[in-house]
Design a binder for these strands. Sequence first.
DNA 1: ATTGTTGTAACATATTATATTACATCAATT
DNA 2: AATTGATGTAATATAATATGTTACAACAAT
Lengths: 143, 143
Amino acid sequence: MQFSFRLPVATHILLCIERFKDEYKTTSTFLASSVNVNPVIIRKTLGQLKAAGLVEVAAGVGGAKLTKSPADITLWDVFQAVEEDEELFHFQENPNPKCPVGRNIHVVLGDRLEEVRQHMLADFQKVTLADLLASIAAKEAAE
Amino acid sequence: MQFSFRLPVATHILLCIERFKDEYKTTSTFLASSVNVNPVIIRKTLGQLKAAGLVEVAAGVGGAKLTKSPADITLWDVFQAVEEDEELFHFQENPNPKCPVGRNIHVVLGDRLEEVRQHMLADFQKVTLADLLASIAAKEAAE
DNA sequence: ATTGTTGTAACATATTATATTACATCAATT
DNA sequence: AATTGATGTAATATAATATGTTACAACAAT
């Protein structure tokens, strides 16, 4: 089981938009060359980020920019933007209701797994784009 | 993105094995009727649980039982048994090495995501089969 | 008008999860 | 030794999802 790479790709996009905002027009083609995926993937992802209110995209002329400070955008925001808001875990739909395990496992195990999911989201909320940009700047400085 | 239902199914199997150990022979057909999946799915999952040392299966005659106390089996054990031991998140393989974001994002973001994964596993370790059996028994008693 | 861009539809491909059938093998029992 | 009910596993089918790609209409600046 793996998460799709939508979260990493979306994060990469946002970081590039901010990192290069004064040097380049951050078009889907430009971003695609850094991430190394098809520009259409970038446009679709930008569409999700736009719908989530994280970026604005200049129609026609092109280029994207953040709508708020990198310190105010967390991985949680990005995750919510690009992943379906569905159950992280899922259960066999129709366990046997005549079995005491079958008719109770969904709620009993579900409660525990929901806690796991909440912790994961809390971890995501702790990381901002500004944190990541700082780490990247540190790497750059060390090169 | 969703986890497959292997973790819930495997947990369901283990709970049934323990809950019904004194009443029924817990064959793949019996377990399949509680979980409501094909018996072959049960056998494959039992194979994974057996490989992980959590159960032993009686060849020929049939039936499975736990190899240790339910208090000593955690969701982490079950998760490790049935999910590939791979990266939880995955990255675009070949980001542009000429871009400072592209060449550093894997390690910078990867570090953060690895922490998220470690927290998830730690959460799994906190839940034992005995906990779940107790919750189910409480539900049964309240019915 | 031309240009470069976005937004989106349509389609292709690969991977994974799950379901199902079939059958060889096994161990206990008769 | 034959029967029985079970496991282990291969082969295959189906569906869902992720990703890649082409194509093109709409758009905004020049």
